[in-house]
Amino acid sequence: MPDYPIYRDPPEQCRTPDAEERSLWGRTLERIADHCRARSLFVLHYCTGCGAIELPPSMTSRFDLERVGMQPMVTPRQADLLLITGYLSVKTLKRVILTYEQMQGPKYVMGFGSCTINGGMYWNSYATVKRLDQYLPVDMYIAGCMPRPEAIQQAFLQLMEKIDSGRAQNWKEYYRRYDHYLGEQQALFGEQFHTPTDVIGEARHYSLFGPETLGEHTAKLAKYDLYHPGQGAVDALEVKR
């Protein structure tokens, strides 16, 4: 087993809430928004593995996920919830990361089946990613090989409860600890790995900057000058992939 630094829990951080968060009006709006978010999840399926087959019964007349406001969406821009339905190869993980970064927060990731938890039956494969949460913040795992629709729905309901109570904030960790995640990604894909999405710029723009947003790994991005759109960005993307 390679010696990856394994990420366990986000460190507790004391953040001073800004004025808008403290105001009653702001808190009320945010509370309503959380409720709406929980009840209106737009789902993006990343159907790489066998887990996808469990989704049609969940969506269609047998269980009907639209009852709880879930709808399938086709592009990451529109979606709130990314479903990773089964094993990830190294090649597909790149696309998952790009897709995840193109989703707009609050966004949630759900790993389907044991493959996303520990590689599952592909544990011995050289090309399969073992742990999804090394590379992306995951909100919910569903164990099983494969999980039945009942289990999937159980997970959805738990996720909705988590969102409704305002505890599903993992997506912010990706911005706060971007250096950590990028490091993991670079360890797997090589040092030249980067996506066209300007995560650091977004973190700065939305005040989601954390102590680990920048670090030794993000320093390697400097040579691509990705974060000054219009100047070096296009050149940077000319790197062959």
């Binding site: 945010e30 928004a33 009840r39 209106s40 009907d64 009852r67 406001g69 609050p106």
Partner: peptide, 20 residues
């Protein structure tokens, strides 16, 4: 199917406008 609850269109719109 049963379909969405009555408040669904409103919730969808509110959620989209409340994206962070």
């Amino acid at each position: 199917r049963i379909g969405p609850p009555w408040y669904q269109p409103l919730f969808d719109i509110y959620k989209l406008f409340a994206k962070d």
